[in-house]
């Protein structure tokens, strides 16, 4: 029983650390943000297991939900800006070619 519980804990924590690493290492802003939201939701699962349901609720709603929504909006702006820079570059090169 306690071995089983320990294995369960180990799986929870490995997934948590894996999600955090993936969120930190991914260079694409939208992907990083979505991984961060997944990390926040998983973290609230872990906290529910540690008998902290209040904090789990707050993390899922505020940390992952509202924080994630804020970051997604910023990530979308960043992605658009990159597209913009690319567009500028193509305009420049076409000018030079002329």
């Amino acid at each position: 029983m306690s071995i089983l519980l320990l294995a369960f804990d180990a799986i929870l924590l490995t997934t948590l650390l894996g999600l955090a690493t993936a969120a930190v290492l991914s260079p694409e802003p939208r992907r990083a943000t979505m991984l961060f939201i997944a990390f926040g939701l998983w973290l609230s699962l872990v906290w529910a297991r540690l008998s902290a349901p209040d904090v789990a609720l707050a993390e899922a709603a505020i940390g992952a939900g509202i924080g994630g929504a804020l970051m997604l909006a910023a990530a979308r702006r960043a992605a658009r800006r990159h597209a913009d820079i690319d567009a500028d570059a193509t305009i420049d090169t076409s000018e030079d070619a002329r």
Binding site: D54, L57, A61, A69
Partner: peptide
């Protein structure tokens, strides 16, 4: 509901406020 239930079970002002905020989002 979360606001009311916070007195005797998990819930309370933060969680309820977060839900209102996400409704706004």
């Amino acid at each position: 509901y979360l606001l009311w239930v916070g007195g005797h079970a998990p819930g309370g002002a933060f969680q309820a406020g977060a839900l209102l905020g996400s409704a706004g989002v």
